[in-house]
Amino acid sequence: MNINYTYAFILLIIVLIICFLVNISLGSVPIPLGAIFESFIGTLEHESWPYIIKEYRLPKAFTAVLVGSGLGISGLLMQTLFRNPLAGPFVLGISSGASLGVALVILGAGIFSGAFASIFVSKWSIIIAASLGSFLVLSAVLVVSSKVRDTMAILIIGLMFGSITAAVVSVLSYFSSAEQLQQYIFWGFGSLGNLSWQELGIFFLVYSLGMLLSIFSIKGLNSLLLGENYAKSLGLNIKQTRLIIIVATSLLAGTITAFAGPIAFIGLAIPHITRQVFTTSNHKILIPAVFLFGAIIMLICDSIAQLPTSDYTLPINAITSLFGAPVVIWLLVRKRKMLF
């Protein structure tokens, strides 16, 4: 590995640790960094801080790391697979598929089986529905797009599937109670908090599986940079690689959407930010770099969303775009060239 990359990675890891600690320290009640260190080694004596750190801030910070890195990597996988810089989990309808699954569970449960609603709307049914929804929509997009071959057409098809799911959600909303609608809309804002350690454990398990598959795809992703025919001539099993990439993406994007809601923009922006900074397309560098950038930016966005020292929390979904879009625009203007 190039020596410059090593320095960049060390720097990013340090920044990640700093962001992680700052994220824990900021919130409605500011906690000094010293107290955080003390709570880690168990010597902190305070009536509420240890509880806030252990049960609220720490799981939230871990969730931010998983969400940011996972969405960034699934965006990277999609951009390489579809050979399109505009691709991302959101554009190709994975997140809208997850939304449809969740809408069916939250809103549909009330319509189809009022009595069982409370059973259906458990966290697990939401997770399974979101994962299934994202997998089905992405597979549908891929099946249809295998018949067209034109990259732009694939994006349009993804958008169309997004419109279909949005329409189904509208129909469901029309028949739903205000309470259920509110629950669905709040899910749509995205949230990194509210996860117990147990839920975080399951999240991490599925996430790790998706991550392992992504790492396993590095070689295939690199040959896909030449296009599918070249990749095939290099001995790549296209169908198998495509399936692994799709499964990895739906595991990552699907569970993230299930646990944290449909978080916009990160999946599209992080790979571009990483490519601009690292000026490479080699996935052996990009995957760990996207991981670090995604985690760092998500931690920063969450820190902003907490509105430090206030009692309010803004929807994380709004902050990612408010913060992320200007960063991408700035990078593109500064470098004057999009690297892909």
């Binding site: 050979r83 030449l226 296009g227 025919n229 070249y230 001539s233 397309s281 080699n282 892909f340």
Partner: peptide
């Protein structure tokens, strides 16, 4: 093979 199609990503270095 050397094909007529353009490579998907031109962000690779020649060595890569």
């Amino acid at each position: 093979l050397v094909l007529t199609e353009k490579i998907a990503s031109k962000n690779l270095s020649v060595f890569e």
